[in-house]
Nucleic acid binder design. Sequence first.
DNA 1: CTGAACGTTCAGTATTGACTGAAACTTCCG
DNA 2: CGGAAGTTTCAGTCAATACTGAACGTTCAG
Lengths: 161, 161
Amino acid sequence: MTPGESQFVEEMGQFLGSIGMTPMAGRMWGYLLICDPPDQTAAQIAEALHASRGAISGTARLLAGPGLIRRSTRPGDRREYFSAPAEALDSMLASAGAIYRQMREIAERGLAATAARPPEARARLQEFHDVMTFVEQEVPRLVGGFLRDRAADQQRRKEPA
Amino acid sequence: MTPGESQFVEEMGQFLGSIGMTPMAGRMWGYLLICDPPDQTAAQIAEALHASRGAISGTARLLAGPGLIRRSTRPGDRREYFSAPAEALDSMLASAGAIYRQMREIAERGLAATAARPPEARARLQEFHDVMTFVEQEVPRLVGGFLRDRAADQQRRKEPA
DNA sequence: CTGAACGTTCAGTATTGACTGAAACTTCCG
DNA sequence: CGGAAGTTTCAGTCAATACTGAACGTTCAG
């Protein structure tokens, strides 16, 4: 990796670390976005990131869970290959959607807990809940549409009329 | 606070804590969403949350920065009042937008750092960048529209034709 | 079967950082 | 000018947790 690439990886680490994931998850995800070839073994990643194998193993589970990376194997090759495929963006934004869902659910429990209160005391929480509900429904739809359009564009570029 | 309300506050704390904010920020924000009256002094909040005044002070700065809460004063009253007004939702979603902006910026630096690479090696990062750019632009617009419609609805309810 | 390569697990470590509580600062009243 | 009420700041403490590195389990080659 060039210094610039290394800095990109590190920035991804810091950023994802700052929003609740581990720094290593950010580094690994960032590295898999720019590495060549796109499929890398755990050992390659560990060396590139100067990290222990244990950290890679744990982080791989973390990222594979929500579908941010893909694990694949090859016939006659015992090693496991990791990659950050294009579909991962769907997964990533779905995870982001899960955040909104959680907030909506918390708001619902809060509304239940304040059921005895006068409406004006619950108005703020109610609005919070309504906005979360809206976002939870509409944002995935919006982004899904964008991804579909984009995929269609690229298809069209390959097979021009 | 009833046990149910207290649990809601705690859940907000855990949740915001899990996505990069401090637990105290979540608790304070949650409490301000359901407290009565809606304006509370630092001392009242500290007592309700069983927290130190120092923690409230620091957290108040943290939340007031991105506009999640409002600080207000009253004539003849040296105390400061905090509240989580409806406008705060705008601010909150704007902050969420800031996350997408940061990711876009990081992606742009990454693209710059990999400028020498062949296009297919940069495709994943490019797509990531494009999606972030789209989300950064369109999500605030979408939510803004919802909030505007909602405000209009409530206005209409107050002044029926 | 032996040994190597690979992956996982887990105890230990080191760092981060959230919160406390006391001290300092500011503002207003008598 | 005291003094009280409110707020901020900051050093210290404590818990959480990200990562390391070694031991273990597993799969395949010779």
